[in-house]
């Protein structure tokens, strides 16, 4: 099976580690993948208003690329991209109005109706590679207490994202165990860090990020992992600055021995 790899804008600039280590790990795990040709930004936020179509088009283009270029398995790493792509894909599948208008505008060779599967890198590890296989491939176990930081975009709304239990998720904890770490469960792991308002309302972002990082530390976390460049930025800049935050792919690469 070949996956169509979608890095998204931030992974080429500020979140390079998420991308680079993600690719290295895929190679180490023997996952076949190819980057989307001429990809563009997913749109960064999912447009909730039912009358918004234009702001969904770039996501539809990417979804369609995966259908046309590859085997219809679109692999994403960034929580926000995953969130936007999965929900827009749901609209293309289920909302006749949006499907009609988007197709009308894009005038694709063949109409797109949500045929692509949007798969987050963590879902790939869980459902296609298997955490047991990762455990076997680990060369340098991460012998640390690691707090999983889910935030909001990965999990909610759970009916649309169907990613994991929205209030008691386990996927990142299972991942941490697989790479030899000890997961730390803490209440704020699925609370929003407030990243969206970090430039316009820094005070709130600081309050929320400090709450998350303090809670994780209070439960013994030595480091945090995230899949989201927004959370990474916000927790690092606006958190308590006492607990380092890593992208999960960086820890994976380290555990697999492919981090230079």
């Amino acid at each position: 099976m070949k996956f169509t790899y979608y890095p998204g804008c931030t992974l080429r600039t500020k979140a390079k580690q998420l991308d680079i280590y993600g690719r290295k790990s895929l190679e180490a795990l023997g996952v076949d993948f190819e980057e989307v040709k001429e990809w563009q930004c997913c749109g960064a936020v999912y447009p909730i208003s039912r009358d918004e179509v234009a702001t969904k088009l770039s996501a539809v283009r990417t979804l369609n690329s995966a259908k046309v270029e590859g085997e219809g398995k679109l692999l994403t790493l960034c929580s926000a991209c995953h969130h936007v792509l999965k929900r827009v894909n749901g609209d293309m599948k289920n909302d006749e109005n949006i499907r009609f208008k988007a197709n009308n505008y894009l005038a694709l060779e063949e109409e797109y109706a949500g045929e692509t599967d949007v798969i987050h890198y963590l879902e790939l590890l869980r459902d296609y590679v298997g955490f047991d296989n990762i455990k076997r491939a680990v060369k340098n176990p991460i012998n640390k207490k690691v707090g999983a930081y889910y935030g909001c975009l990965l999990l909610r709304p759970s009916k649309e994202l169907a990613f994991d239990s929205p209030e008691n998720p386990t996927i990142i904890e299972d991942f941490i165990k697989a790479i030899g770490g000890t997961p730390v469960i803490y209440g704020m792991r699925n609370e929003c860090c407030g990243a969206y308002v970090s430039a316009t309302n820094k005070e709130i972002a600081v309050k929320k990020s400090v709450k998350v990082t303090d809670d994780a530390m209070g439960h013994g976390a030595e480091l945090l992992v995230t899949a989201c460049p927004l959370c990474m930025y916000n927790l690092t800049e606006n958190g308590n600055k006492k607990v380092p935050v890593y992208y999960f792919t960086e820890l994976l690469a380290e555990a697999l021995g492919v981090k230079e």
């Binding site: 209030e167 803490y186 209440g187 704020m188 609370e191 809670d215 209070g218």
Partner: peptide, 11 residues
């Protein structure tokens, strides 16, 4: 809306 643990208390 939420129950979480903090310093041995259920918040």
């Amino acid at each position: 809306g939420k129950v979480y643990e903090e310093n041995g208390k259920l918040m």
